[in-house]
């Protein structure tokens, strides 16, 4: 076979690298067949090459079709998926347990604080000094009258913090799950690739 055509077919084969080897061989064989048919019809080499057109145009016609259907492995999507897994894996280790523990504990403390304030104030009123409950902010110790109102304020603050921590936790979980849904959306290319490889195995 003519050296020009040999090079042409080699170039096609090279450009079709993203396709599976068997499919590539089939395509090259069919184009080779076409060249032989044209030679049988006594077309000149130049005419044949003109009709086949630029190898990259021909290859792109095959690939364009295959890529929109996700025939080949798409490294970009795989990378995005891996990045997603790593990021949620690493942040999940911290975010979920810390917020999961903090939120209910902050709530609990928010309830304990006014209760303790009430006990302390009642004790002071009755003339008892309860040593187990102390209100102190650095060097500042509030006067007995202010203990109960301050304890209520602290309680509200803690409960608000707990609620905030809980909302952040819920938001985090929802966001992660939304991103996951998006990555596995049936209309998403990555998912189709994923299902394809699963189908191939079965």
């Amino acid at each position: 076979m003519n050296k020009k055509f040999e090079n042409y077919l080699k170039e096609i084969d090279r450009l079709l690298k993203p396709l599976p080897a068997s499919e590539r061989a089939d395509i090259v064989k069919e184009i080779h067949g076409s060249i032989l048919e044209m030679e049988r019809e006594h077309l000149s080499d130049q005419q044949i090459l003109e009709r086949l057109g630029d190898p990259s145009t021909l290859a792109r016609a095959y690939l364009g079709d295959a890529l929109t259907k996700c025939d080949g492995l798409r490294p970009r999507h795989l990378l995005i998926f891996l990045a997603f897994l790593s990021l949620t894996g690493v942040t999940g280790i911290f975010v979920i347990p810390i917020l999961g523990v903090c939120a209910p504990l902050l709530f609990l403390c928010g309830i304990i604080s006014p209760v303790a304030g009430l006990v302390k104030s009642v004790g002071t009123l009755l003339g008892y000094e309860i040593p187990y409950i102390m209100f102190q902010f650095g060097s500042f110790t509030p006067p007995a009258v202010l203990v109960f109102p301050i304890s209520i304020l602290i309680g509200i603050g803690l409960i608000l913090l707990g609620r905030g921590a809980w909302h952040v936790l819920v938001l985090y979980v929802k966001t992660v799950s939304n991103i996951k849904d998006h990555l596995f959306d049936p209309s998403n290319l990555f998912t189709r690739l994923f299902h394809r490889s699963v189908n191939k195995e079965s």
Binding site: I31, S34, L52, G53, Y62, G64, D65
Partner: peptide
Amino acid sequence: STESTVYPLLRR
């Protein structure tokens, strides 16, 4: 038409 349109179409 030429090979570059018909063959990819057949494959699809």
